[in-house]
């Protein structure tokens, strides 16, 4: 096996993993604390990407694009929370699924009306758009390394926030026992709105970060949201640590599965069969993992304590 290719694919998997974590972290918080199934979380990922793309093209700076798009995405998140989502908290999961499905339709169409049916290609600044030589002679895209760095930094920041601050204490309390936060006399409405907006920012940021690689497209959120749900179920609903571990795991499994599964299959079956079976299985891999986890450990890998 080609070692440098393996390292590159591992890094690619890591990069996918941190992006997935950004989306899944917000999802696991809203799910864990508000018990909200928000399918439209992926729409915020898309909105973030499109806003950032516009600003980048307009100002010529990707950095400014990101800096302005983060608060803009937060505003969109706030608006959605205060108009629709807030009314869904007391409802059951079925209503959540349907209403947020409606939100997806709205957002997809709105984006199409504003930005047109074509996606936007986002140019990278020169200094990010290069390659770096890693130890071991591996050449890797520097922007992907930046994504990994930013993702890990944010993960560390979130970890600090959740474990070491008062807000984080409330969030953890809320994720494990919802009635407890009301007993503490906290303004739940504000906490929920705040958490939702933070989640929106994180998802939006993931969209912004990915847009120079894949461009923006309508429906980009609908692909990632399902993966994000897989992650929070695998990790344990409401658990930040679980979301992180599962996101990295899923990112690696997905990337490595797609590149190496056919080689593995060729060891045990003939080449022709392997070439049909491998892509099928690698696409299904994360769902298979989720089904296994749900069947044998329904609470996920790292369920919040005292749930």
């Amino acid at each position: 096996m080609d070692t440098s290719l393996f390292i590159i694919q591992t890094l690619n998997g890591l990069q996918l993993g941190v992006l997935l974590f950004l989306v899944a972290s917000g999802l696991t918080l809203t799910f864990g604390i508000m018990d909200l199934v928000n399918l439209a979380h992926g729409s915020l990922y898309m909105i973030g990407a499109f806003i950032c793309a516009s600003i980048t093209l307009w100002t010529g700076s990707f950095l400014i694009g990101i800096l302005l798009a983060i608060p803009a995405t937060a505003l969109v998140g706030l608006a959605v929370e205060m108009t629709v989502i807030r009314n869904l908290y007391p409802r059951d999961h079925l209503d959540h699924v349907l209403a947020t499905f409606g939100l997806i339709l709205c957002f997809d169409t709105l984006v199409q009306i504003i930005w047109g049916p074509e996606g936007i290609a986002v140019p990278l600044p020169k200094w990010m758009d290069g390659q770096v030589l890693l130890p071991g002679g591996v050449v890797f895209a520097s922007y992907r390394l930046i994504i990994i760095g930013v993702g890990l930094a944010i993960a560390a920041g979130l970890y600090f926030l959740v474990v070491h601050t008062r807000i984080g204490m409330l969030i953890r309390a809320g994720a494990s026992n919802r009635t407890m936060i009301s007993a503490l006399g906290i303004n739940i409405k504000a906490l929920f709105t705040g958490v939702f907006a933070v989640g929106a920012c994180l998802a939006g940021l993931a969209g912004m970060l990915v847009s120079p690689i894949t461009g923006t497209s309508i429906g980009m959120g609908n692909e990632i949201i399902i993966t994000a749900f897989v992650i929070i179920i695998v990790g344990g609903i409401g658990s930040m640590k679980g979301a992180f571990v599962a996101a990295i795991l899923i990112g690696l499994i997905d990337t490595l599965g797609r590149s190496y599964l056919d080689d593995v299959f060729k060891l045990v079956m003939n080449a022709e069969v392997a070439e049909t079976a491998a892509p099928a299985l690698s696409a299904m891999l994360i769902y298979i993992i989720m089904a296994l986890i749900l069947a044998f450990r329904p609470q996920g890998l790292f369920p919040p304590k005292t749930r």
């Binding site: 749900f229 179920i233 892509p279 769902y287 749900l294």
Partner: peptide, 21 residues
């Protein structure tokens, strides 16, 4: 919600299985 998600996962598996044939 786990039931919602696992049935969705099986649906997606089928989707990808057909895509790859």
């Amino acid at each position: 919600v786990h039931f919602i998600m696992i049935t969705m996962a099986f649906g997606q598996m089928t989707y990808f299985a057909i895509v790859s044939i």
